[in-house]
Design a protein around this nucleic acid. Structure first.
Length: 305
DNA sequence: GACACGTGGTA
DNA sequence: TTACCAAGTGT
């Protein structure tokens, strides 16, 4: 069990089978009934869910995903909309650049892939807003391929159950990636189920704050538990500053834009933040990011093209 | 590799 | 209440 799976011998293969069986059985009994996992889901729906879920809790994504899928059921439907419509519909999910990239990705899917979400990992990766994780997740969840899907939940489960650490490193390491690959079941359908199952275990049981070890199928073989649940020894995570930051100002500016059907004046924007210098800098940043469009008459709107 | 990037729920 | 945390990506 302490042997690295990369050095797998006969005993470790049995060990790996045991790991797979426990997690897959647990998932069969405890998986949440999420709409992007439903039998009638589309690859587009999976892609939309993955982007929405980036750094954003499931509970907040759920209603937004349903609304988006009803409004823009295919990539081409979204590509036909103005980017500003996507930003407005993104509402308060946070990180609105994701909405812009989602819209750009819809255009790329139509222009380069005949309107169908590509199955190939490299082509997925080339879409705006799709990084290593999301490309692997879509290839695995939507198309049943065999990929190491490594998100924060998976990293935490691996760190505890296999490596014996309370928390994974600050950033994804090559060793973690290799471990994730080494743990993958051989056949694609099982690997795809494994990927979503480990993630679900991390989301529901092996949580960051207060893990529910009593409910964990791996309790009696968890390396971290067996080691006496040692505390995290690495550096504490840096909290994200918020009050007074550009991020907060950007959020306020965009909130004004989202809330208005018509373009807004500079005065209306000024009302949301007193510091002229900072407000101007943030507005420039939003324009540079393509989230805000300055109009010839001096007003501002969400991007129209 | 570090940093910027939104928002709101929870302990 | 303050701080942490949530299915990351792009620069």
């Amino acid at each position: 069990m302490s042997t690295a799976p990369a050095d797998a011998g006969p005993d470790d293969i049995h060990d790996l089978d045991d790991l797979h069986t426990r997690v897959l059985d647990w998932y069969a009994d405890h998986a949440r009934d999420l709409p992007w996992r439903a039998a009638d889901r589309t690859p587009w729906g999976v892609l939309v869910s993955e982007v929405m879920l980036q750094q954003t809790p499931v509970a907040r994504v759920l209603p937004q995903w349903l609304a988006w899928m009803e409004r823009w059921p295919t990539p081409s439907d979204l590509a036909d909309a103005a980017p500003g419509d996507a930003v407005r519909a993104w509402d308060r999910l946070g990180y609105p650049r994701r909405a812009l990239r989602r819209h750009a990705a819809a255009g790329a899917v139509r222009a380069e892939h005949g309107g169908e979400v590509p199955e190939d990992h490299a082509r997925l990766l080339a879409l705006p807003g799709v990084g290593t994780y999301t490309a692997a997740a879509v290839a695995s969840f939507a198309f049943g391929q065999r990929h190491a899907v490594v998100d924060t939940n998976v990293r935490r489960v691996h760190a505890r159950a296999v490596t014996g650490a309370a928390e994974p490193a600050a950033a994804l390491t090559a060793a973690e990636q290799r471990l994730a690959v080494a743990l993958l079941p051989e056949d694609a359908p099982t690997a795809a189920r494994w990927a979503v199952a480990v993630m679900e275990l991390g989301a529901l049981v092996c949580t960051a704050r207060s893990p529910r070890c009593d409910d964990c199928p791996l309790l009696d073989r968890c390396a971290w538990v067996l080691a006496g649940r040692p505390a995290h020894d690495g550096p504490a995570r840096r909290g994200q500053a918020w009050a007074g930051t550009d991020r907060q100002v950007r959020g306020k500016l965009l909130s004004v834009l989202r809330g208005s059907a018509d373009p807004v004046t500079a005065d209306e924007l000024a009302a949301c933040w007193a510091d002229d210098r900072q407000r101007a800098r943030c507005l420039d940043g939003l324009v540079a990011d393509g989230l805000v469009e300055p109009l010839p008459d001096g007003r501002f709107s969400l991007p129209r093209t």
